[in-house]
Amino acid sequence: FCRVDPYGFERPEDFDYASYEAFFSRYLVVLTRRAIKWSKLLKGKNNIQKSLKGELLRKGEEHCQLLWLSVRGALLGHIQTAGSSGLWPTRTAEGRTEGVKCVVILPQNMNRTFPDNVKFRKTADPCLQHTLYNVLVAYGHHNKAVGYCQGMNFIAGYLILITKNEEESFWLLDALIGRILPDYYSPAMLGLKTDQEVLGELVKMKVPAVAELMERHGVMWTLVVSRWFICLFIDILPVETVLRIWDCLFYEGSKIIFRVALTLIKQNQAFILEATNFPDICDKFKQITKGTFVTECHSFMQKIFTDPGSLSMATINKLRETCREKLLSQG
């Protein structure tokens, strides 16, 4: 293993090569086995049974690219039936930035997106900063209500690293922001505020001791989890793990974020409860996103579907509704 991972991220000084190698050799077996299944499945043309596909995604067959291409296929279909031209917007925008909310801060954000990734360096050739800029400007034109919000740079950046394609990255970004995530990035950030509260309610139900600790010390959820939502675990969990989570996110929707969050909290319940004050609690929430439990992405993904117990979309929708109303009434 070298100093730079396959996605271009420099490994930290204290990177544990030995245990990563041990993990990866095990994981490679899983990936290969699943890749064979996937290729068989995809050869079966359009008749992939939905349930079977979901099942495979959970198991992480098709690590990323193939899967996303198929999701994108569905997505493009969706866009066309919705009557949109489906034209790649940089063509129509011609790089113009006027009229796009917050786009002025984009240039300064370029150097601050993955400074630890060699492909995003100004000196890189090709330099992915240009691709990133194009995708985000195009998205700002496409979704005027949102424009540009910090956090989207990381998400678009990941999509570019994986698809290596500007246009596909754009459509996947649109799928996430326009369809899969509820209003996280618009100026009022109401969807984000709501989901943070929803997580709080779910923790109350499923890990009450932690909810009680947070309340006792006056730690608001936004202080410890807003980045989990805004960046969809980028720069919080290891790359492999984030990609596995995203596989499921694209297919099963935003409730996956709650499953991951609840799993992290539940699994580390005893550890979090050792905290005796406000700074301690914030620190624990940083710690629980590190270590073997999250690096072992295959077993981690199995855990997220069992550990938190049942989590229906109906429950989440109901909580979203009550939390949103509460937030709106608070002004």
């Binding site: 954000n109 150097n111 601050r112 997106t113 993955f114 400074p115 630890d116 910090q150 956090g151 740079n153 990381f154 936004t222 202080l223 807003s226 980045r227 805004i230 960046c231 720069d235 700074p279 914030c282």
Partner: peptide, 13 residues
């Protein structure tokens, strides 16, 4: 001089 954009408030003591 190359750290990432701050997205979540944090504190140091």
């Amino acid at each position: 001089d190359k750290h990432i954009t701050t997205l979540q408030a944090s504190f140091l003591t």
